[in-house]
């Protein structure tokens, strides 16, 4: 699986309240949540994002609430991968559990500007800024998590285990 698209660039501590404000959490409908994705930090995100685009952010992306609605909104909005210098731990866990690819790579984050075309090769963790030609290697996931991603999330991973 690979990803390629335009980068939407954000700073430190993008919290789950700005990814999906609580005023929209009276639903669990993924499409409705996606229609408000990033609304309180970037009012034009939903209008501009296209299937396959990437979010690139600095430290502690997804801090705050445990709302899985946040990675769900990002995934359903069409984002193919989030690259950050670091992730808040519940967001990290939730993304893996629902099958939203995320990569930690501080060096890549410094080398990507808003609007750059970025590609990601998940099998190797290679991130390439197609606009500048620079490449970086992200830290690969531990095997346990790779298996979970390959199974398309935690529930399928566990169901396989139950059947086996």
């Amino acid at each position: 699986m690979n990803a390629k698209g335009k980068a939407f660039r954000y700073g430190d501590n993008v919290d789950t309240d700005v990814i999906i404000p609580a005023r929209y959490l009276n639903t669990s409908d993924a499409k409705e949540l996606a229609s408000h994705c990033m609304e309180d930090i970037d009012g034009t995100f939903v209008k501009n994002v296209q299937q396959g685009d990437l979010i690139v952010a600095e430290r502690n992306f997804g801090c705050g609430s445990s709302r899985e609605h946040a990675p769900l909104a990002i995934k359903t909005a069409g984002v193919s991968c989030v690259i950050a210098a670091s992730f808040a731990r519940i967001f990290y866990r939730n993304s893996i559990n629902i099958g939203l690819p995320i990569l930690e790579c501080p060096e890549a984050v410094q080398g990507i500007d808003s609007g750059d075309i970025v590609s990601v090769e998940f099998s190797t963790g290679t991130i390439t800024n197609e606009t500048t030609g620079k490449s970086w290697a992200a830290e690969p996931f531990p095997p346990f998590i790779q298996e979970m991603i390959a199974a398309d999330g935690l529930i399928n991973y566990l169901r396989k285990g139950v059947k086996a």
Binding site: S66, E68, P71, R93, N97, I98, L158
Partner: peptide, 25 residues
Amino acid sequence: ADSHTCTYGALGAFSTGVGSTDMAA
């Protein structure tokens, strides 16, 4: 499935927040 689940450490429990899929599993 609430980030403030960490509250119960006051009583010497290990408690931590997770998301909905973890809760389901």
